[in-house]
Amino acid sequence: MSKKIELMVGLFVALGIAAFLALAIKVADAGIQGNGESYQLHAKFDNIGGLKVRSAVKVGGVVVGRISSIRLDSEDYTPIVTLDIFTKYDNFSETTSLSILTAGLLGEQYIGLDPGFMDEELGIEILQPGDYIEDTKPAIVLEELIGQFLFSQDSDN
């Protein structure tokens, strides 16, 4: 076994490991955000549009969590979305509202979370893990939007 071969193999392995590290840190940005500790909140929507499991939950554009599951309520057939919120964001009030938004014109859909206000005198408290967020706005469906637009045009005339 010549020294040259050993050297080349060592370089090869080092290069491969470096590539893995570069992928993990530079591309996936692991370590900075990661999938750390999280707690769950639930929300009912009338229509979730193109929302998917693992879509982001954002507050003012900052990712605070991800969607962990989407299922249908067995009684009234409305979608129930479960959100995994990172533990470091653990003081959203009960007046928090959710809306389903789209990144750009044709981008992915995500949940925009509006933290709302807090007032202990009115009995408004912090959301506990497992709570339901009541105030939700459904996804905007393009067809309905166009329909509404045409309808309002009609009534104007």
Partner: peptide
């Protein structure tokens, strides 16, 4: 280019690829 990539790519993608 990099920030959107970092937001959308997950460690799971790398693990699955591996």
């Amino acid at each position: 280019f990099w920030s959107v990539m970092q937001a959308d790519v997950d460690l799971r993608d790398i693990i699955n690829g591996t």
